[in-house]
Design a binder for these strands. Structure first.
Length: 482
DNA sequence: TGGGGTTAT
DNA sequence: ATAACCC
């Protein structure tokens, strides 16, 4: 077989699916050369394929784990494997394994509906994200070993820019190996591969790397997932979802329009969310073709030039946004939702719980947050998703105590949070909250700046500002500014 | 609708 | 501080 490895066999794939999909698989070795195309002129290397400076086309992979939380739970407790499994947060089944999906359970389904559809459904609580978060970063780190440019999207998706890696592999390749070059996994739209087309070749090499990534994820972490390889993030993401679960697909440029036109509504385009979709609908735009052909001027007037130009490009499958390395997280937050919180004491208890978990996390990270934020959601029949927040700087003397074990850092921080709370909620009046969240952000690396160095005088907490009476006073007294 | 995240304004 | 987007 020319297809490379599909770890799916071990993960238990459906036979019927296999038969149907086998029709669309790559057979690059046979399908590769178009009869009339010119033969390579300079044997011994492939540099002839890449006219200098002309190669602006990228190779991007989107890696998408299969029902991630459920996979983590099945690794934690192997007895769950083979059973229909749902991961529950509050009264929602937020995700479930494929056994459960076959029996009609959907993502974000009400627990009651899910149990009704599938009485044998096993539920595990997934409100504590710790193990998911840890596994998520292991995946990102594994991908970073292939190429350092990895962008996270949520806990279970990553983009990797493979352009450089592909170039390196092509330089190693001898021209007599070219005719035997094969991709891995599916080719979208069962498109014909032209081995004389450098763009095709690069994407096929990208698909080989994607297969290696999925192999490594399975061998080292026990996780299965899908991958999509294409020339930009939008297309890579769209194509990764074509064959699921645990399979991969490469998109060749000639099939880009087929892919994006296959979307039945603009809302399915990543980058067009709920709000924008509603506004587009008001303009009579519902299909991708509608958006492609709509007057750019009118669209700019309705949505603003930035959104209008960006989403209209998206509708053509164009996306020049770079794969931005995520690096360590920009913020840590913990939240809890509930039916009702209507007293200050109640709120304080919940806030203390959230903060305690956060301090553990931030301690393990090593960096120090310089800003703290409190977020609430008020009960209301409409506008359920709207939240309010207040933030302030964390006083420097509290920041310094953050890593040190026995010092009580809880008390001053809870005091700050309760000030923020009372700034948002008039506690003398009745109130009804349905969510509390605490966020630590503005993370800075540990202060290694030494006296007399440039760093010392450029570090505000060490240099003159923090010794001035005025600044000191402001840090202590003003909790409402940042 | 959960419990997270990001960037732009 | 909010609003939009993503999972």
């Amino acid at each position: 077989e020319q297809l490379g490895v599909e770890p799916a066999e071990e993960a238990g794939r459906d036979e019927e699916e296999d038969a149907a999909q086998a029709m669309e698989r790559v057979e690059a070795g046979e399908a590769g050369c178009s009869p009339g195309a010119p033969a390579p002129e300079e044997p011994g290397g492939l540099t002839w394929l890449v006219p200098e400076g002309s190669s602006s086309s990228r190779v991007i992979v989107h890696v998408d784990l299969d029902c991630f939380y459920a996979q983590v739970e099945m690794i934690s407790n192997p007895e769950l494997k083979g059973k229909p499994l749902g991961v529950q947060q509050k009264y929602l089944v937020v995700t479930c394994n494929y056994e459960a999906r076959k029996l009609g359970v959907k993502k974000l389904m009400n627990v009651r509906d899910a149990k009704e559809k599938c009485p044998q459904l096993v539920l595990v609580n997934g409100e504590d994200l710790t193990r998911y978060r840890e596994m998520s970063y292991k995946v990102t780190e594994l991908l970073e070993e292939f190429s350092p440019v990895v962008e996270r999207l949520g806990f279970d998706e990553n983009f990797v820019d493979l352009t450089e890696m592909v170039e390196k592999r092509l330089q190693q390749l001898q021209s007599d190996e070219l005719s035997a070059l094969t991709g891995s996994g599916h080719v979208y739209n069962n498109q014909y591969i032209n081995l004389h087309d450098i763009v095709h070749i690069r994407l096929l090499v990208g698909s080989q790397i994607a297969a290696e990534m999925r192999e490594a994820m399975y061998n080292q972490l026990g996780l299965t997932g899908c991958a999509g390889v294409a020339s930009n993030k939008l297309l890579a993401k769209l194509v990764s979802g074509i064959f699921k679960p645990n399979q991969q697909t490469v998109l060749l440029p000639e099939s880009s329009q087929v892919l994006i036109q296959s979307l039945s509504h603009v809302k399915e385009m990543p980058g067009i969310g709920y709000k924008t979709a509603k506004r587009l609908e008001a303009l009579g735009i519902s299909s991708v073709l509608d958006l492609q052909t709509f007057s750019p001027k009118i669209l700019e007037k309705e949505l603003g030039i930035s959104v209008a130009q960006r989403i209209q490009k998206l509708s053509f499958g164009e996306d020049n946004s770079p794969v931005t390395p995520s690096g360590p997280p920009q913020s840590f937050s913990e939240e809890d939702s509930f039916k009702k919180c209507s007293s200050e004491v109640e709120a304080k208890n919940k806030i203390e719980e959230l903060l305690a978990s956060l301090l553990n996390r931030v301690c393990q990270d090593g960096r120090k947050p310089h800003t703290i934020r409190l977020i609430i959601r008020r009960y209301s029949s409409e506008n359920h998703c709207s939240r309010e927040s207040r933030q302030c700087p964390i006083p420097s003397h509290v920041i310094q105590k953050l890593g040190t074990g026995n010092c009580d850092v809880m008390t001053p921080m809870v005091d700050i949070l309760m000030k923020l709370f009372r700034n948002m909620v008039n506690v003398k009046m009745p109130f009804h909250l349905t969510l509390l969240s605490v966020c630590l952000c503005n993370l800075k690396a540990l202060n290694t700046a030494k006296k007399g160095t440039i760093d010392y005088y450029l570090t505000p907490s060490l240099s003159t500002t923090s010794r001035s009476g005025k600044r000191s006073f402001k840090m202590k007294d003003s909790h409402m500014e940042d």
